[in-house]
Design a protein around this nucleic acid. Structure first.
Length: 526
RNA sequence: GAGCCCGUAGCUCAGCCGGUAGAGCAUCUGCCUUUUAAGCAGAGGGUCCUGGGUUCGAGUCCCAGCGGGCUCACCA
């Protein structure tokens, strides 16, 4: 039984274009040739010859060979215009039957929007003054069998933009720029860290114990070793092992995987910069973070201010607040409490209840803290912070001194062991980063893991797993070290003024259209 | 997981109080040797997401499902 031919929607256009493909072959042209030697790219031509006057071009008769995708064709009887797009640039090409000859002009007539062609000819200007390639030789480089999206509105369906990102990139101006910004951002961070003696490393993505953060992991399995593995939720514990090994300044920019819900701010795989600096504490990283992020914004935008979601975010002015101070400063429900009130469990819980009573009547301004009756001061203040403050941190802000009990890998403060030497970075209402002085006392780390295990037994799936080998590494001596993680995707959102993390990830996770293995297309009808 | 909104031609969308399925672009045919959202004349293209229900009659109303978006929850 012969295989049915593959058939894509829209069927009529797919079939019509295949008929054209056959005619092109009958004319003796290869619709998918091997190569094309261009003399210039389209952007080069546009850049180089845009200033040239019609007269200059007329006398120079500059010959070029150039390739691009056809995005517009305007037939005019025995002539026609086509717009060649390559990269961000567009070049108009003019075709005449009397210049090309019968056969090549027939090839031109068989072209469709989306075809990729090479053209050779001389540059000039039309009577409207537009820089135009007057084509003498036409080469088909790839026949497109499916039509591009409509030219006015382009591809606006969000779902299709993500599912067929290649169409999004062809049609929508600006998508390319988002990913160029993303690349420049990563390059800046690499340069910044390399200049300060950090070494880039790669650590396992598949880990027998998913450590370094509180999150549900993805599971996988290695057959030969019959070994269950997790996709990493963070590289933290491996990077600190490297610091034990004497790599005093290390960083990694790579993917983390967290088996959690999708949202405008969350994708299950996301890119994190994580770096560790020996002989530094979290205060040193506060300075470094401000310098790094301000430098990033200035390098990429030319200014220390940027606009995010219609608000100016000013990186020339950072504020630093303790978590408790922030709750008091941003307090909404009547008279603001004092930071000391949040240090006491009973008072903190009462404040949370007070906030919730207010928030119920102002659902557009704040979320509920929903603090359980048994909550510690730490948990209550943390949840109050998220309810009252977090989304309103639009200006660049460092929030420090998080509760120790939710920071199992961070060093305690000397003067207040309930607080950890930890801070988070906020801007544009986004949580961008998290940093702390690393706990390097192996015995205390062991005890902290034990506490996490107890929480796990009480049903907290995100409590940290015991990692004895990590404790052993600490037992060989980790110097005083501070470490930081920065979410690259969210940072890109901030710098590209995008609301959804899916705009800055080329292929964000979507539910597949069909069950796996059923093939990419509708089967043929017979 | 919950709430709200959406699903109509390849694309972007309209479709009123339930009464013959629409537009622009794209496609096809013809004309057109400097156009550029080219133009002119004509043509084809629909499982109105799916399945039930109400009704003489459903794109429209009701229920369920599927898919998507947004918000919330989760994400220390």
């Amino acid at each position: 039984m012969p295989e049915p031919p593959i058939l894509f929607e829209p069927e009529d256009q797919f079939l019509i274009r295949q008929q054209k493909l056959e005619e092109i072959r009958r004319l003796g042209y290869d619709p998918y040739p091997r190569h094309f030697d261009a003399s210039h790219t389209v952007p080069e031509i546009v850049q180089q010859f845009s200033p040239a006057s019609a007269q200059t071009l007329e006398t120079e008769k500059r010959r070029v060979r150039v390739a691009g995708r056809i995005r517009s064709i305007r037939f005019h009887g025995k002539t026609g215009f086509a717009d060649l797009h390559a990269g961000p640039a567009r070049l108009q090409a003019y075709f005449r039957r009397d210049r090309l000859g019968e056969q090549a002009y027939r090839l031109f007539e068989l072209l469709d929007l989306g075809d990729i062609i090479g053209a050779e000819g001389t540059l000039g200007r039309t009577k409207t003054g537009e820089l135009t390639l007057f084509v003498e030789q036409l080469t088909l480089l790839a026949k497109a069998l499916l039509p591009l999206p409509e030219k006015w509105h382009g591809l606006a369906g969000i779902e299709q933009r993500y599912r067929q990102r290649y169409l999004d990139l062809i049609v929508n101006q600006g998508v390319r720029e988002i990913f160029q910004t993303r690349a420049r951002l990563i390059r800046f961070l690499r340069d910044f860290l390399e200049a300060r003696g950090f070494l880039e490393v790669e650590t396992p993505m598949m880990q027998p114990i998913a450590g370094g953060a509180a999150a549900r992991p993805f599971r996988t399995h290695h057959n030969a070793l019959d070994l269950d593995l997790y996709l990493r939720i963070a590289p933290e514990l491996y990077l600190k092992r490297l610091v034990v090994g004497g790599l005093d300044r290390v960083y990694e920019i790579n993917r983390n995987f967290r088996n959690e819900g999708l949202s405008v701010r969350n994708n299950p795989e996301f890119t994190m910069l994580e770096f560790y600096q020996a002989y530094a504490d979290y205060r040193a990283l506060m300075d470094l973070s401000e310098e790094m992020l301000t430098g990033l914004v200035e390098t990429l935008t030319g200014s220390k201010q940027l606009t995010y979601q219609d608000q100016v975010v000013d990186f020339s002015r950072w504020q630093r607040l303790s978590l408790r101070e922030a709750v008091c400063e941003y307090w909404l429900a009547g008279k603001a409490p004092r930071p000391a009130d949040l240090a006491q469990a009973e008072k903190a819980r009462r404040l949370a209840a007070e906030h919730d009573r207010w928030a119920v009547n102002h659902p557009d301004q704040a979320r509920l803290a929903s603090v359980p009756h048994s909550a510690s001061a730490a948990v209550a203040s943390q949840q109050l912070f998220e309810a009252v403050v977090e989304r309103r941190l639009f200006q660049p802000t460092l929030i420090y001194d998080f509760p120790t009990e939710i920071s199992p890998l961070a060093k305690r403060r000397d003067d207040d062991p309930a607080l950890a030497e930890r801070f988070e970075i906020f801007a544009g209402g986004l949580e961008l980063g998290n940093a702390f002085s690393e706990l390097n006392d192996p015995l205390e780390q062991y005890q902290r893991f034990r506490q996490q295990l107890q929480q796990r037994e009480r049903g907290d799936e995100e409590a940290h797993q015991m990692d004895q080998d990590y404790v052993r590494a600490l037992a060989y001596g980790l110097p005083p070290t501070a470490g930081e993680g920065i979410g690259i995707d969210r940072l890109t959102m901030l710098l590209t003024n995008t609301r959804s993390i899916r705009e800055v990830i080329l292929f964000p996770l979507l539910r597949p259209l069909r069950p796996e293995g059923s093939g990419p297309a509708e089967p043929g009808t017979q």
